[in-house]
Simulated scan of single mutants.
Amino acid sequence: MASANSLQRLLCERHSGLEEALAVFDDLAPVEPAMLWGRWQGSEIRTGHPMEGWLEVCGWYGKQFLDFETVHPLLMRIGAGEPFPIRPLPGALELASRVSPQAFQLPGPLLRRSLLLLRTRRPQARLRRMEVRGVVSATMLYDHLPVHDAFRLVDEDTVLGLMQAKGDPRPYLFLLERRP
């Protein structure tokens, strides 16, 4: 069981051991899907997952939930520009697990600009209620990837997310904060 101090530390530092972060996640209340409608800005919780740093290098902004069938799982942003949705690439998670994001620090701006080629208006995910880690909560299912993101409630404007890819025993944790 996680403490209130563990939650506060996780929210402030955005860094934790995996077991402690999972204990915090498990202690949080489930999320109703409709509570997620809107745009959310994301930040990763560093727990040692191989994907850490990748979303930041790529210019990840967050997610947008319009309804059960219309979800943009990856909103990206170039500089201070307006966030835009992209199509997730099959194989991107595998690449992220094999190559350090530091390898892309210098060409990062070029990498972010290349994401414009993946820009889409079509939703790339949907939202359902699913049981994850013993609790039924809002869960986002990618349309073309064997990945789901489960959500738990921190407060009305903050949720903790847990991304689980098929075949990867380690989840990736992130925080989403509601934006206008």
Rank of each mutant, 00 (worst) to 15 (best):
R9V: 10
L11S: 04
C12Y: 11
E13M: 13
H15W: 11
H15G: 04
S16P: 04
S16C: 09
E20W: 05
E20A: 14
A23C: 09
A23P: 00
V24G: 00
D26T: 05
D27R: 15
L28Q: 02
L28E: 03
V31Y: 06
P33R: 01
A34F: 11
L36P: 00
L36N: 01
L36K: 00
E44C: 03
I45D: 01
I45S: 00
G48R: 08
H49W: 06
H49K: 01
P50N: 01
M51F: 15
M51Y: 15
E52L: 11
G53W: 07
W54F: 12
W54I: 01
C58H: 06
G62P: 02
G62K: 02
F65S: 00
L66C: 08
D67R: 05
F68I: 06
E69M: 08
V71M: 01
V71Y: 01
H72G: 02
H72M: 08
P73W: 07
L74E: 11
L75H: 04
M76N: 03
R77I: 11
E82C: 09
E82W: 10
I86T: 05
R87N: 11
R87C: 12
P88H: 02
P88F: 05
P88N: 03
P88Y: 03
L89F: 11
L89D: 09
P90G: 05
G91H: 08
G91T: 10
L93K: 02
L93Y: 11
L93S: 08
L95M: 14
A96R: 09
V99T: 13
S100L: 10
P101G: 08
P101R: 07
Q102L: 15
F104N: 03
P109D: 02
L110Q: 09
L110P: 03
L110R: 07
L110G: 09
L110Y: 07
L111Y: 04
R112Q: 15
R113E: 13
R113D: 08
R113V: 07
S114R: 14
S114M: 15
L115T: 01
L116C: 12
L117V: 08
T120D: 05
R121F: 10
Q124T: 06
Q124R: 13
A125L: 10
R126K: 09
R128L: 14
R128W: 08
R129E: 10
M130R: 14
M130Q: 12
E131W: 10
V132C: 06
R133P: 00
R133W: 04
G134F: 12
V136D: 08
S137W: 11
S137V: 12
T139A: 12
L141H: 13
H144C: 10
F151D: 00
L153C: 07
V154Q: 06
V154H: 11
V154L: 10
